[in-house]
């Protein structure tokens, strides 16, 4: 047997183990850190729990409601003594419902929710204003111990003027009260100046073959008899 036989076998085993591990991870995606920001799990009968149980494919894990791909659909961080939402919070940008009541939150939340385009229900402590202000939501309801911001509005449509973005740009919602300009359909590149893709292969194919045939033709008719000096 070759001297390298044993290490090779060991390498193979390690590789197989890695593969199995990878498959396992694929089956049960890693829990986003934001879900364990606060100990405990989603309380039964809470809004997030009710939302999650509406569809069987969704699963409750720690403080989150996850869809089969592992994206956060609901986040229940109520009663976590949070002053701010932390650096992991953007992981929940796919959330439809977020419950933050009973937290001593401070400061303006507007930019915290950048990218939270799916968010439809946001439960906040009573003294915290809805991000983006009252205009960013369909209904804002105040209760004694909390405040509910319901139904995110698309401000790109409501404000009415079309000239909100530079040429070839289009306005898209970017979270409650937030908008951003991205490239309109079919445009790409810096300042969305480019449209479509140039076919290098076709161009050089045509140019190359034309050059070749013209060169051969002219060589034959013109330079063949030329005396090289």
């Amino acid at each position: 047997m070759a001297p390298g036989g044993l290490p090779r076998l060991a390498g193979l085993a390690r590789w197989a183990a890695a593969l199995l591990l990878a498959l396992g991870v694929a089956r049960a995606p890693a829990l986003p850190e934001v879900c364990v920001r606060c100990p405990g799990s989603v309380r039964r009968w809470s809004r997030v729990a009710l939302f999650c149980e509406r569809t069987p494919a969704r699963s409750l894990r720690a403080r989150c409601c996850l869809d089969p791909e592992g994206a956060v659909l609901g986040l229940d961080l109520q009663n976590c003594s949070l002053k701010d939402l932390g650096p992991d919070f953007p992981q929940a940008h796919t959330a439809v419902i977020i419950d933050l009541q009973a937290n001593p939150l401070q400061g303006d939340l507007a930019s915290t929710f950048r990218g939270f385009t799916q968010l439809q229900t946001l439960v906040l402590p009573q003294d915290v204003r809805c991000p983006g202000g009252i205009n960013a939501w369909d209904t804002v309801t105040s209760y004694t111990d909390n405040q509910i911001c319901q139904g995110q509005r698309n401000l790109c449509n409501t404000t009415g003027h079309l000239e909100m973005c530079p040429e070839n740009g289009v306005c898209v919602p970017d979270g409650p009260g937030l908008m951003q300009c991205v490239c309109a359909d079919g445009f790409h590149g810096y300042k969305c100046m480019r449209q479509g893709w140039f076919s290098l292969l076709t161009f050089f194919g045509i140019l190359g073959s034309t050059t070749l045939s013209v060169s051969v033709l002219l060589w034959g008719t013109q330079r063949r008899k030329a005396e090289t000096s």
């Binding site: 480019r194 449209q195 479509g196 140039f198 161009f203 060169s215 002219l218 030329a226």
Partner: peptide, 27 residues
Amino acid sequence: QYGYEYAFLVTASVQFAGGIVIFFGLL
């Protein structure tokens, strides 16, 4: 529309091809 770099690419390539044709065909 594909980007200004392709405008340069196309004219430069055609010019290069012209140089080749000149080399083989001009008396």
